[in-house]
Design a protein around this nucleic acid. Structure first.
Lengths: 227, 227
DNA sequence: CCATGACCATACGCTACCGTATGGTCAAAA
DNA sequence: TTTTGACCATACGGTAGCGTATGGTCATGG
Protein backbone atom coordinates (compact mmCIF):
# COMPACT_ATOMS: atom_id res chain seq x y z
CA UNK A 1 0.00 0.00 0.00
CA UNK A 2 2.43 2.56 -1.18
CA UNK A 3 1.19 6.13 -1.26
CA UNK A 4 1.13 7.94 -4.51
CA UNK A 5 3.23 10.94 -3.65
CA UNK A 6 2.55 13.70 -6.04
CA UNK A 7 5.64 15.52 -7.01
CA UNK A 8 3.99 18.64 -8.27
CA UNK A 9 6.92 20.89 -8.36
CA UNK A 10 5.81 24.45 -8.51
CA UNK A 11 8.31 26.55 -10.33
CA UNK A 12 9.02 28.65 -7.33
CA UNK A 13 9.30 29.17 -3.62
CA UNK A 14 7.22 26.61 -1.78
CA UNK A 15 9.02 23.40 -2.39
CA UNK A 16 5.87 21.67 -3.39
CA UNK A 17 7.07 18.16 -2.94
CA UNK A 18 5.44 16.17 -0.21
CA UNK A 19 8.13 17.03 2.29
CA UNK A 20 6.93 17.65 5.75
CA UNK A 21 7.80 20.20 8.38
CA UNK A 22 8.00 19.90 12.12
CA UNK A 23 4.73 21.75 12.30
CA UNK A 24 3.00 19.17 10.17
CA UNK A 25 4.06 16.57 12.68
CA UNK A 26 2.95 18.67 15.60
CA UNK A 27 -0.45 19.22 14.04
CA UNK A 28 -0.83 15.54 13.35
CA UNK A 29 0.16 14.85 16.92
CA UNK A 30 -2.51 17.21 18.18
CA UNK A 31 -5.09 15.58 16.00
CA UNK A 32 -4.13 12.14 17.22
CA UNK A 33 -4.23 13.42 20.77
CA UNK A 34 -7.76 14.57 20.30
CA UNK A 35 -8.78 11.16 19.12
CA UNK A 36 -6.86 8.85 21.35
CA UNK A 37 -5.24 10.90 24.05
CA UNK A 38 -1.57 11.18 24.74
CA UNK A 39 -1.00 7.50 24.12
CA UNK A 40 -2.12 7.93 20.54
CA UNK A 41 0.78 10.23 19.86
CA UNK A 42 2.91 7.40 18.53
CA UNK A 43 5.53 7.90 15.92
CA UNK A 44 4.87 4.99 13.66
CA UNK A 45 1.10 5.34 13.41
CA UNK A 46 1.50 9.06 12.82
CA UNK A 47 3.99 8.38 10.09
CA UNK A 48 1.58 6.00 8.44
CA UNK A 49 -1.15 8.58 8.69
CA UNK A 50 1.04 11.21 7.12
CA UNK A 51 2.03 8.84 4.39
CA UNK A 52 5.64 8.80 5.39
CA UNK A 53 7.95 6.86 7.67
CA UNK A 54 9.83 7.22 10.91
CA UNK A 55 12.83 8.34 8.96
CA UNK A 56 11.11 11.64 8.38
CA UNK A 57 10.08 12.03 11.97
CA UNK A 58 13.46 11.46 13.49
CA UNK A 59 14.87 14.01 11.14
CA UNK A 60 12.60 16.74 12.52
CA UNK A 61 12.50 15.66 16.16
CA UNK A 62 14.96 14.05 18.47
CA UNK A 63 12.34 11.79 20.01
CA UNK A 64 8.70 11.38 20.86
CA UNK A 65 8.88 13.64 23.88
CA UNK A 66 10.02 16.51 21.71
CA UNK A 67 7.00 15.99 19.53
CA UNK A 68 4.67 16.04 22.48
CA UNK A 69 6.20 19.23 23.72
CA UNK A 70 5.91 20.87 20.35
CA UNK A 71 2.29 19.81 20.04
CA UNK A 72 1.45 21.17 23.47
CA UNK A 73 3.16 24.42 22.71
CA UNK A 74 1.17 24.72 19.55
CA UNK A 75 -2.05 23.98 21.37
CA UNK A 76 -1.29 26.47 24.06
CA UNK A 77 -0.64 29.36 21.75
CA UNK A 78 -3.51 28.59 19.43
CA UNK A 79 -5.87 28.50 22.36
CA UNK A 80 -4.53 31.74 23.68
CA UNK A 81 -5.05 33.37 20.34
CA UNK A 82 -8.54 32.01 20.15
CA UNK A 83 -9.39 33.52 23.50
CA UNK A 84 -7.91 36.80 22.49
CA UNK A 85 -9.92 36.74 19.31
CA UNK A 86 -13.04 36.28 21.39
CA UNK A 87 -12.07 39.23 23.49
CA UNK A 88 -11.79 41.75 20.73
CA UNK A 89 -15.38 41.74 19.61
CA UNK A 90 -18.00 42.57 22.19
CA UNK A 91 -17.71 45.80 24.11
CA UNK A 92 -20.11 44.75 26.87
CA UNK A 93 -18.39 42.53 29.43
CA UNK A 94 -21.58 40.67 30.27
CA UNK A 95 -22.17 39.76 26.67
CA UNK A 96 -18.49 38.84 26.33
CA UNK A 97 -18.81 36.41 29.17
CA UNK A 98 -21.93 34.90 27.72
CA UNK A 99 -20.37 34.44 24.34
CA UNK A 100 -17.23 33.06 25.85
CA UNK A 101 -19.15 30.50 27.80
CA UNK A 102 -21.49 29.50 25.02
CA UNK A 103 -18.83 29.20 22.36
CA UNK A 104 -16.52 27.40 24.74
CA UNK A 105 -19.06 24.77 25.59
CA UNK A 106 -20.09 24.38 21.97
CA UNK A 107 -16.56 23.87 20.88
CA UNK A 108 -15.79 21.49 23.71
CA UNK A 109 -18.73 19.39 22.66
CA UNK A 110 -17.39 19.10 19.15
CA UNK A 111 -13.66 19.05 19.60
CA UNK A 112 -12.42 16.35 21.96
CA UNK A 113 -8.91 17.74 22.13
CA UNK A 114 -9.36 19.76 25.26
CA UNK A 115 -10.99 16.92 27.13
CA UNK A 116 -8.30 14.58 25.92
CA UNK A 117 -5.68 16.89 27.32
CA UNK A 118 -7.42 16.94 30.65
CA UNK A 119 -7.49 13.19 30.52
CA UNK A 120 -3.76 13.16 30.04
CA UNK A 121 -3.02 15.51 32.88
CA UNK A 122 -0.99 12.83 34.57
CA UNK A 123 1.84 13.68 32.24
CA UNK A 124 3.85 16.55 33.70
CA UNK A 125 4.19 18.38 30.41
CA UNK A 126 0.47 18.27 29.82
CA UNK A 127 -0.13 19.36 33.37
CA UNK A 128 2.15 22.34 32.95
CA UNK A 129 0.48 23.44 29.75
CA UNK A 130 -2.93 22.99 31.32
CA UNK A 131 -1.90 25.00 34.33
CA UNK A 132 -0.77 27.92 32.23
CA UNK A 133 -3.85 27.94 30.05
CA UNK A 134 -6.19 27.46 32.98
CA UNK A 135 -4.68 30.27 34.97
CA UNK A 136 -4.89 32.60 32.04
CA UNK A 137 -8.49 31.74 31.36
CA UNK A 138 -9.67 32.00 34.91
CA UNK A 139 -7.86 35.29 35.24
CA UNK A 140 -9.57 36.52 32.16
CA UNK A 141 -13.01 35.51 33.31
CA UNK A 142 -12.37 37.03 36.69
CA UNK A 143 -11.43 40.25 34.95
CA UNK A 144 -14.76 40.18 33.18
CA UNK A 145 -16.55 39.80 36.47
CA UNK A 146 -14.55 42.67 37.88
CA UNK A 147 -15.54 44.75 34.90
CA UNK A 148 -19.12 43.93 35.70
CA UNK A 149 -18.73 45.54 39.07
CA UNK A 150 -18.01 42.65 41.36
CA UNK A 151 -15.34 43.25 43.98
CA UNK A 152 -12.01 41.64 43.38
CA UNK A 153 -12.29 38.55 45.54
CA UNK A 154 -15.83 37.89 44.49
CA UNK A 155 -14.81 38.27 40.86
CA UNK A 156 -12.01 35.80 41.40
CA UNK A 157 -14.34 33.35 43.06
CA UNK A 158 -16.94 33.59 40.38
CA UNK A 159 -14.36 33.31 37.66
CA UNK A 160 -13.22 30.09 39.21
CA UNK A 161 -16.77 28.84 39.51
CA UNK A 162 -17.56 29.75 35.94
CA UNK A 163 -14.53 27.92 34.67
CA UNK A 164 -15.29 24.98 36.89
CA UNK A 165 -18.71 24.84 35.33
CA UNK A 166 -17.26 25.01 31.87
CA UNK A 167 -14.91 22.15 32.66
CA UNK A 168 -17.64 20.01 34.11
CA UNK A 169 -19.83 20.69 31.15
CA UNK A 170 -17.09 19.79 28.71
CA UNK A 171 -16.43 16.62 30.64
CA UNK A 172 -20.06 15.61 30.64
CA UNK A 173 -20.59 16.38 27.00
CA UNK A 174 -17.75 14.08 26.16
CA UNK A 175 -18.10 11.25 28.66
CA UNK A 176 -21.84 11.10 29.22
CA UNK A 177 -23.44 13.25 26.55
CA UNK A 178 -26.81 11.74 27.23
CA UNK A 179 -27.14 13.68 30.46
CA UNK A 180 -27.00 17.02 28.72
CA UNK A 181 -30.02 18.51 26.99
CA UNK A 182 -29.76 18.68 23.24
CA UNK A 183 -31.09 21.03 20.62
CA UNK A 184 -33.14 23.94 21.87
CA UNK A 185 -33.09 22.68 25.40
CA UNK A 186 -29.35 22.96 25.40
CA UNK A 187 -29.36 26.67 24.78
CA UNK A 188 -32.05 27.11 27.37
CA UNK A 189 -29.97 25.19 29.84
CA UNK A 190 -26.92 27.28 29.08
CA UNK A 191 -28.97 30.40 29.55
CA UNK A 192 -30.15 29.22 32.91
CA UNK A 193 -26.61 28.35 33.93
CA UNK A 194 -25.36 31.73 32.88
CA UNK A 195 -28.17 33.35 34.74
CA UNK A 196 -27.09 31.51 37.85
CA UNK A 197 -23.46 32.40 37.34
CA UNK A 198 -24.21 36.06 36.83
CA UNK A 199 -26.89 36.56 39.43
CA UNK A 200 -25.81 38.96 42.17
CA UNK A 201 -25.17 37.55 45.59
CA UNK A 202 -26.86 38.56 48.79
CA UNK A 203 -30.16 36.76 48.81
CA UNK A 204 -29.01 33.91 50.94
CA UNK A 205 -31.46 31.22 51.73
CA UNK A 206 -32.62 27.82 50.71
CA UNK A 207 -36.30 28.53 50.39
CA UNK A 208 -37.13 28.50 46.72
CA UNK A 209 -39.20 31.46 45.78
CA UNK A 210 -39.08 30.28 42.24
CA UNK A 211 -40.37 32.24 39.33
CA UNK A 212 -39.77 32.03 35.65
CA UNK A 213 -36.38 32.96 34.37
CA UNK A 214 -36.98 36.05 32.33
CA UNK A 215 -35.67 35.41 28.85
CA UNK A 216 -34.66 38.97 28.12
CA UNK A 217 -31.05 38.29 27.41
CA UNK A 218 -30.87 34.98 25.64
CA UNK A 219 -27.45 33.83 24.65
CA UNK A 220 -28.37 31.37 21.96
CA UNK A 221 -25.75 31.58 19.34
CA UNK A 222 -25.97 28.39 17.38
CA UNK A 223 -23.02 29.13 15.26
CA UNK A 224 -20.22 26.97 14.09
CA UNK A 225 -16.85 28.48 14.54
CA UNK A 226 -13.37 28.10 13.32
CA UNK A 227 -10.03 28.34 14.99
CA UNK B 1 0.47 1.05 50.12
CA UNK B 2 0.60 -2.64 49.53
CA UNK B 3 -0.24 -4.79 52.47
CA UNK B 4 2.02 -7.35 53.97
CA UNK B 5 1.07 -10.74 52.74
CA UNK B 6 0.91 -13.10 55.61
CA UNK B 7 2.08 -16.53 54.83
CA UNK B 8 -0.10 -18.53 57.18
CA UNK B 9 1.83 -21.72 57.39
CA UNK B 10 5.52 -21.23 57.58
CA UNK B 11 6.57 -24.62 58.92
CA UNK B 12 8.33 -25.50 55.72
CA UNK B 13 10.99 -23.02 54.69
CA UNK B 14 9.66 -20.71 51.98
CA UNK B 15 7.10 -22.89 50.34
CA UNK B 16 3.77 -21.58 51.59
CA UNK B 17 2.12 -18.97 49.32
CA UNK B 18 -1.02 -16.93 49.59
CA UNK B 19 -3.76 -17.72 47.12
CA UNK B 20 -5.65 -14.94 45.48
CA UNK B 21 -9.24 -14.47 44.46
CA UNK B 22 -10.76 -12.73 41.49
CA UNK B 23 -11.72 -9.90 43.80
CA UNK B 24 -8.15 -9.35 44.83
CA UNK B 25 -7.31 -8.86 41.20
CA UNK B 26 -10.23 -6.53 40.63
CA UNK B 27 -9.25 -4.42 43.61
CA UNK B 28 -5.68 -4.25 42.44
CA UNK B 29 -6.93 -3.25 39.02
CA UNK B 30 -8.97 -0.43 40.51
CA UNK B 31 -6.00 0.78 42.48
CA UNK B 32 -3.82 0.74 39.40
CA UNK B 33 -6.50 2.56 37.49
CA UNK B 34 -6.52 5.31 40.05
CA UNK B 35 -2.81 5.77 39.67
CA UNK B 36 -2.24 5.34 35.98
CA UNK B 37 -5.58 5.20 34.28
CA UNK B 38 -6.95 2.39 32.23
CA UNK B 39 -3.62 1.75 30.58
CA UNK B 40 -2.12 0.90 33.94
CA UNK B 41 -4.45 -2.06 34.27
CA UNK B 42 -1.86 -4.40 32.82
CA UNK B 43 -1.66 -8.01 33.78
CA UNK B 44 2.04 -8.43 34.27
CA UNK B 45 2.66 -5.32 36.34
CA UNK B 46 -0.35 -6.17 38.47
CA UNK B 47 0.96 -9.65 38.99
CA UNK B 48 4.28 -8.27 40.08
CA UNK B 49 2.54 -5.94 42.47
CA UNK B 50 0.51 -8.76 43.92
CA UNK B 51 3.60 -10.86 44.29
CA UNK B 52 2.39 -13.47 41.87
CA UNK B 53 2.51 -14.20 38.16
CA UNK B 54 0.32 -14.20 35.10
CA UNK B 55 -0.42 -17.83 35.69
CA UNK B 56 -2.62 -16.83 38.58
CA UNK B 57 -4.39 -14.14 36.64
CA UNK B 58 -5.34 -16.26 33.69
CA UNK B 59 -6.77 -18.79 36.03
CA UNK B 60 -9.24 -16.29 37.47
CA UNK B 61 -9.96 -14.30 34.32
CA UNK B 62 -10.19 -15.15 30.69
CA UNK B 63 -8.36 -12.01 29.62
CA UNK B 64 -7.61 -8.41 30.45
CA UNK B 65 -10.99 -7.17 29.32
CA UNK B 66 -12.71 -9.39 31.81
CA UNK B 67 -10.59 -7.88 34.55
CA UNK B 68 -11.48 -4.37 33.47
CA UNK B 69 -15.14 -5.22 33.46
CA UNK B 70 -14.95 -6.75 36.90
CA UNK B 71 -13.12 -3.75 38.25
CA UNK B 72 -15.66 -1.35 36.81
CA UNK B 73 -18.50 -3.36 38.19
CA UNK B 74 -16.87 -3.25 41.56
CA UNK B 75 -16.38 0.47 41.35
CA UNK B 76 -19.91 1.06 40.26
CA UNK B 77 -21.51 -0.80 43.10
CA UNK B 78 -19.16 0.53 45.72
CA UNK B 79 -19.89 4.08 44.60
CA UNK B 80 -23.59 3.42 44.67
CA UNK B 81 -23.35 2.12 48.18
CA UNK B 82 -21.33 5.11 49.19
CA UNK B 83 -23.96 7.46 47.88
CA UNK B 84 -26.66 5.52 49.60
CA UNK B 85 -24.71 5.67 52.82
CA UNK B 86 -24.58 9.43 52.46
CA UNK B 87 -28.30 9.50 51.95
CA UNK B 88 -29.28 7.76 55.11
CA UNK B 89 -27.97 10.29 57.58
CA UNK B 90 -29.29 13.82 57.28
CA UNK B 91 -33.04 14.37 57.34
CA UNK B 92 -32.86 17.89 55.90
CA UNK B 93 -32.47 17.80 52.12
CA UNK B 94 -30.55 21.07 52.02
CA UNK B 95 -28.00 19.80 54.48
CA UNK B 96 -27.86 16.51 52.58
CA UNK B 97 -27.00 18.31 49.43
CA UNK B 98 -24.34 20.36 51.16
CA UNK B 99 -22.75 17.32 52.73
CA UNK B 100 -22.93 15.43 49.47
CA UNK B 101 -21.18 18.21 47.63
CA UNK B 102 -18.55 18.87 50.26
CA UNK B 103 -17.66 15.24 50.83
CA UNK B 104 -17.70 14.55 47.13
CA UNK B 105 -15.25 17.28 46.35
CA UNK B 106 -13.06 16.36 49.28
CA UNK B 107 -12.88 12.78 48.22
CA UNK B 108 -12.28 13.66 44.59
CA UNK B 109 -9.35 15.77 45.66
CA UNK B 110 -7.80 12.84 47.51
CA UNK B 111 -8.78 9.86 45.43
CA UNK B 112 -7.80 10.11 41.79
CA UNK B 113 -9.83 7.08 40.77
CA UNK B 114 -12.89 8.95 39.68
CA UNK B 115 -10.94 11.43 37.62
CA UNK B 116 -8.96 8.61 36.11
CA UNK B 117 -12.16 6.95 35.04
CA UNK B 118 -13.33 10.13 33.43
CA UNK B 119 -10.02 10.31 31.67
CA UNK B 120 -10.60 6.84 30.31
CA UNK B 121 -14.08 7.53 29.07
CA UNK B 122 -12.97 6.75 25.54
CA UNK B 123 -13.25 3.09 26.41
CA UNK B 124 -16.83 1.96 25.85
CA UNK B 125 -16.98 -0.10 29.04
CA UNK B 126 -15.82 2.84 31.11
CA UNK B 127 -18.25 5.09 29.30
CA UNK B 128 -21.13 2.76 30.07
CA UNK B 129 -20.27 2.55 33.74
CA UNK B 130 -19.86 6.30 33.92
CA UNK B 131 -23.17 6.82 32.23
CA UNK B 132 -24.99 4.65 34.73
CA UNK B 133 -23.35 6.24 37.74
CA UNK B 134 -23.75 9.75 36.41
CA UNK B 135 -27.42 9.32 35.66
CA UNK B 136 -28.05 7.92 39.08
CA UNK B 137 -26.21 10.72 40.79
CA UNK B 138 -27.79 13.52 38.84
CA UNK B 139 -31.17 11.98 39.43
CA UNK B 140 -30.46 11.84 43.10
CA UNK B 141 -29.37 15.44 43.32
CA UNK B 142 -32.35 16.51 41.30
CA UNK B 143 -34.56 14.68 43.75
CA UNK B 144 -32.96 16.66 46.54
CA UNK B 145 -33.74 19.89 44.74
CA UNK B 146 -37.28 18.73 44.23
CA UNK B 147 -37.52 17.99 47.92
CA UNK B 148 -36.40 21.53 48.54
CA UNK B 149 -39.42 22.80 46.69
CA UNK B 150 -38.09 23.44 43.22
CA UNK B 151 -40.40 22.43 40.40
CA UNK B 152 -39.46 19.33 38.51
CA UNK B 153 -37.73 20.82 35.49
CA UNK B 154 -35.89 23.39 37.56
CA UNK B 155 -34.79 20.66 39.94
CA UNK B 156 -33.50 18.64 37.04
CA UNK B 157 -31.64 21.60 35.64
CA UNK B 158 -30.07 22.49 38.94
CA UNK B 159 -29.13 18.90 39.62
CA UNK B 160 -27.32 18.84 36.34
CA UNK B 161 -25.60 22.12 37.10
CA UNK B 162 -24.58 20.96 40.55
CA UNK B 163 -23.09 17.79 39.19
CA UNK B 164 -21.40 19.71 36.42
CA UNK B 165 -19.81 21.88 39.05
CA UNK B 166 -18.71 18.88 41.03
CA UNK B 167 -17.10 17.37 37.95
CA UNK B 168 -15.31 20.55 37.04
CA UNK B 169 -14.09 20.94 40.57
CA UNK B 170 -12.80 17.39 40.66
CA UNK B 171 -11.09 17.93 37.36
CA UNK B 172 -9.43 21.11 38.50
CA UNK B 173 -8.31 19.69 41.80
CA UNK B 174 -6.56 16.93 39.96
CA UNK B 175 -5.19 18.62 36.87
CA UNK B 176 -4.50 22.14 38.08
CA UNK B 177 -4.79 22.08 41.86
CA UNK B 178 -3.06 25.42 42.13
CA UNK B 179 -6.13 27.22 40.87
CA UNK B 180 -8.27 26.08 43.77
CA UNK B 181 -8.11 27.74 47.14
CA UNK B 182 -6.58 25.63 49.89
CA UNK B 183 -7.13 25.34 53.60
CA UNK B 184 -9.77 27.61 55.07
CA UNK B 185 -10.30 29.39 51.81
CA UNK B 186 -11.37 26.16 50.24
CA UNK B 187 -14.30 25.67 52.58
CA UNK B 188 -15.26 29.29 52.12
CA UNK B 189 -15.17 28.82 48.39
CA UNK B 190 -17.30 25.71 48.60
CA UNK B 191 -19.76 27.56 50.77
CA UNK B 192 -20.02 30.33 48.26
CA UNK B 193 -20.49 27.84 45.45
CA UNK B 194 -23.21 26.07 47.36
CA UNK B 195 -24.84 29.36 48.08
CA UNK B 196 -24.90 30.07 44.37
CA UNK B 197 -26.22 26.64 43.52
CA UNK B 198 -29.00 26.85 46.08
CA UNK B 199 -30.04 30.44 45.63
CA UNK B 200 -33.59 30.75 44.34
CA UNK B 201 -34.07 32.01 40.83
CA UNK B 202 -36.11 34.98 39.76
CA UNK B 203 -33.87 37.94 40.38
CA UNK B 204 -32.56 38.17 36.89
CA UNK B 205 -30.02 40.82 36.16
CA UNK B 206 -26.37 41.46 35.83
CA UNK B 207 -26.06 44.42 38.15
CA UNK B 208 -24.12 43.25 41.16
CA UNK B 209 -25.83 44.32 44.31
CA UNK B 210 -23.22 42.50 46.26
CA UNK B 211 -23.32 41.98 49.96
CA UNK B 212 -21.59 39.62 52.27
CA UNK B 213 -22.52 35.99 52.14
CA UNK B 214 -24.14 35.29 55.44
CA UNK B 215 -22.23 32.49 57.13
CA UNK B 216 -25.18 30.98 58.94
CA UNK B 217 -24.97 27.56 57.47
CA UNK B 218 -21.34 26.76 56.95
CA UNK B 219 -20.62 23.39 55.46
CA UNK B 220 -17.08 22.89 56.64
CA UNK B 221 -16.66 19.29 57.44
CA UNK B 222 -12.99 18.55 57.29
CA UNK B 223 -13.42 14.88 57.85
CA UNK B 224 -11.61 11.98 56.35
CA UNK B 225 -13.85 9.24 55.20
CA UNK B 226 -13.68 5.67 54.20
CA UNK B 227 -15.25 3.60 51.42
C1' DC C 1 -1.84 -43.09 50.47
C1' DC C 2 -2.57 -41.67 46.21
C1' DA C 3 -5.58 -39.19 42.95
C1' DT C 4 -7.87 -35.18 41.76
C1' DG C 5 -8.49 -30.55 40.93
C1' DA C 6 -7.71 -25.80 42.28
C1' DC C 7 -4.20 -22.72 41.93
C1' DC C 8 0.33 -20.87 40.52
C1' DA C 9 5.18 -20.62 37.90
C1' DT C 10 7.68 -20.50 33.73
C1' DA C 11 8.69 -20.45 29.09
C1' DC C 12 7.24 -19.29 24.69
C1' DG C 13 5.50 -16.74 20.52
C1' DC C 14 3.21 -12.54 19.00
C1' DT C 15 2.32 -7.52 18.33
C1' DA C 16 3.17 -2.67 18.77
C1' DC C 17 6.01 0.66 19.50
C1' DC C 18 10.71 3.28 20.38
C1' DG C 19 15.03 4.63 18.79
C1' DT C 20 19.39 3.83 15.72
C1' DA C 21 21.97 3.06 11.64
C1' DT C 22 22.67 3.57 7.13
C1' DG C 23 21.80 4.24 2.60
C1' DG C 24 18.73 6.43 -1.13
C1' DT C 25 16.74 10.64 -3.61
C1' DC C 26 16.44 15.02 -5.42
C1' DA C 27 16.69 20.21 -5.85
C1' DA C 28 19.66 23.63 -5.82
C1' DA C 29 24.31 25.40 -5.25
C1' DA C 30 29.01 25.28 -7.05
C1' DT D 1 27.75 18.50 -14.31
C1' DT D 2 29.07 17.33 -10.16
C1' DT D 3 28.38 17.91 -5.34
C1' DT D 4 26.01 18.87 -1.32
C1' DG D 5 22.83 18.50 2.18
C1' DA D 6 18.10 18.32 3.50
C1' DC D 7 14.85 14.95 3.65
C1' DC D 8 13.03 10.23 3.55
C1' DA D 9 13.03 4.75 3.35
C1' DT D 10 14.32 0.52 5.33
C1' DA D 11 16.30 -2.71 8.20
C1' DC D 12 17.58 -3.70 12.72
C1' DG D 13 17.60 -4.47 17.79
C1' DG D 14 15.27 -3.55 22.13
C1' DT D 15 11.22 -3.35 25.50
C1' DA D 16 6.59 -4.07 27.31
C1' DG D 17 2.68 -6.24 27.38
C1' DC D 18 -1.00 -10.02 25.83
C1' DG D 19 -2.25 -14.59 25.63
C1' DT D 20 -1.07 -19.82 25.49
C1' DA D 21 0.96 -24.04 26.86
C1' DT D 22 2.47 -26.92 30.06
C1' DG D 23 4.11 -28.52 34.09
C1' DG D 24 4.55 -27.91 39.37
C1' DT D 25 2.46 -27.79 44.20
C1' DC D 26 -0.65 -28.54 47.74
C1' DA D 27 -5.06 -29.65 50.26
C1' DT D 28 -8.59 -32.66 50.44
C1' DG D 29 -11.62 -36.67 49.57
C1' DG D 30 -11.81 -41.36 48.46
Amino acid sequence: MVMVRERARETRGSGARQRLTARDWADAALAAMGEGGLAAVAVEPLAARLGTTKGSFYWHFTNRDALIEAALERWEESRTEAVIAELAEEPDPGARLRRLFVRGTHRAAEDPLEVSLLASAADPRVAAALARVTDRRIGHIAALYAELGFPEDEAQRRGLLAYTTYLGHAQLSHAVPGTLPAGDARDRHLDAVLETLLRPAGTTGTSPDVREVSPDTRASESAAERG
